[in-house]
């Protein structure tokens, strides 16, 4: 039990990721306001992006640009660039999803005059 706690606190980035992810999920599930749901959704996406970035970090490493072209490359000295590239793409995907979501929200508001899920469900009946 104690070892498990120690293991968790030695990796604060994973702990942060779990907290943000579950926080976003909680907001998404419990709030009735559609825009708040979108905020929860975006928090959740961002937490995954945070996780991707955090697994590429290394202690004492620098940006992945070769310091010298003559010496042999030591991978330990450089942060892993690939998760950052994935992160950029994931951010773009997240922004596009959020844009479509907000457009849908605006259309829903114009049609039903409300952003509250329960109001809308009542009007649908």
């Amino acid at each position: 039990m104690v070892e498990a706690f120690v293991a968790v606190f030695q990796r604060p980035n994973f702990l942060t990721f779990v907290i943000i992810f579950l926080w976003g999920f909680y907001i998404m599930v419990t709030r009735f306001n559609l825009v708040k749901k979108l905020i929860g959704m975006y928090l959740m996406q961002t937490s995954v992006i945070f996780f991707l970035v955090s697994i590429s970090a290394k202690k004492g490493a620098t940006i992945p640009v070769l310091l010298s072209t003559t010496e042999p490359v030591k991978a330990v000295n450089y942060a892993n660039p690939l998760p950052h590239v994935l992160t950029l793409t994931a951010i773009v995907v997240g922004v596009a999803t959020l844009g479509v979501g907000l457009a849908l929200c605006a259309a829903i508001y114009r049609k039903y005059g409300s952003l509250d899920e329960q109001d809308i469900l009542e009007k649908l009946k």
């Binding site: 999920f25 998404m28 559609l34 749901k37 979108l38 959704m41 959740m44 996406q45 995954v48 995907v93 999803t97 479509v100 979501g101 849908l104 929200c105 259309a107 829903i108 049609k111 809308i120 649908l124």
Partner: peptide
């Protein structure tokens, strides 16, 4: 619109 919004929220959960 409302069905699409629900699909968007759940689909994004799946993608995440």
């Amino acid at each position: 619109l409302f069905a699409a919004f629900r699909y968007l929220v759940l689909g994004t959960l799946g993608a995440s």
